[in-house]
């Protein structure tokens, strides 16, 4: 266990060296957040129809997207991809560690720490100045934290699947693009999911992607009550478990194929 924890920490120390990147990210997210909010403001003012969320909830949802955008799995794990491409995956196979969890723990650090580094300043700026609200209750805040944790695990499990697919397709660009498009559209990070048409809702509800953003954000804004949220947390966790199992199975198969076919 401590091997995976150390991998996570080591990756974290690497990422902390890139504070400037995080700062630039914050500025960009604030800028885009501002533009998005202007669009939704115009939309709310010009329409008299009932909207799925109140204006204040929508604004908060939008800021949460900006703060947590990097939680969306938008590309394969670059380090694992490189090791598959140049064959140094052999180095990782001579370690007494489970390759899946080794990559997973490294990927988790890569996912979580940049989010933390960008989210904190955005909260600090958007809450007092740009209409972002606090969680509706202390319980909702705790539920949100739990759900974000589940979202990070889910995101890693999805990234792992994409990365593992490289054992068959080597060039990762196509997979990364497909993944980025699917995950941003279906998680709610482009348009909040409640704004999608009714016929799309069952599909969105069934797919794993809403667990990345929509579920944690709606419990934060109070659009989903705590009672409604609990089964949604189950949705996140079950999907994560399923994707981890598929990923482990595929990785074992892919490595066996690598072993059979040679490096």
């Amino acid at each position: 266990m401590s091997a995976y924890l150390s991998t996570f920490q080591a990756r974290g120390r690497v990422l902390l060296q890139y504070r400037e990147a995080a700062l630039a990210g914050v500025v960009t997210q604030l800028f885009w957040g501002g533009i998005r909010i202007m669009i939704y403001e115009a939309f709310y003012r010009s329409s008299s129809a009932a909207q799925p969320m109140s204006y204040a909830q929508t604004v908060t949802y939008l800021w949460l997207i900006q703060a947590m955008l990097l939680l969306v799995p938008w590309r394969v794990d670059p380090e694992a991809a490189a090791s598959i491409r140049d064959g140094s995956v052999a180095y990782e196979m001579v370690r007494p560690a489970d390759l899946y969890w080794y990559w997973f723990s490294r990927g988790l650090a890569q996912r979580v720490l940049p989010v933390l580094m960008r989210a904190a300043p955005i909260f600090i700026i958007a809450m007092p100045f740009f209409g972002m609200q606090a969680p509706v209750s202390a319980a909702a805040a705790l539920a949100w934290v739990a759900s974000i944790g589940a979202a990070a695990l889910l995101s890693c499990a999805i990234t792992m699947l994409a990365t593992i697919s490289l054992l068959w397709s080597v060039a990762g660009d196509g997979v990364s693009r497909l993944l980025a498009t699917l995950a941003s559209l279906l998680s709610g990070s482009v348009v909040p999911l409640p704004f999608y048409p009714d016929w799309a809702q069952p599909v969105l509800n069934a797919l794993p992607f809403r667990g990345l953003m929509d579920i944690p954000f709606r419990v934060y804004t109070g659009d989903v009550t705590l009672g409604q949220w609990l089964p949604l947390l189950g949705h996140q966790l079950i999907w994560t478990a399923v994707l981890v199992l598929i990923g482990r199975w595929l990785l074992a198969r892919g490595l066996r194929r690598l072993v059979v076919q040679g490096g």
Binding site: A3, S6, A10, R13, V14, S88, Y91, R95, P96
Partner: peptide, 22 residues
């Protein structure tokens, strides 16, 4: 190839290997 972490001081890669090999 290298088994060391590119961005970390050498000693931290060593520590990491200590944990991986327990």
């Amino acid at each position: 190839r290298t088994q060391l972490w590119w961005d970390l001081p050498v000693i931290e890669s060593f520590d990491l290997l200590r944990d991986i090999y327990a």
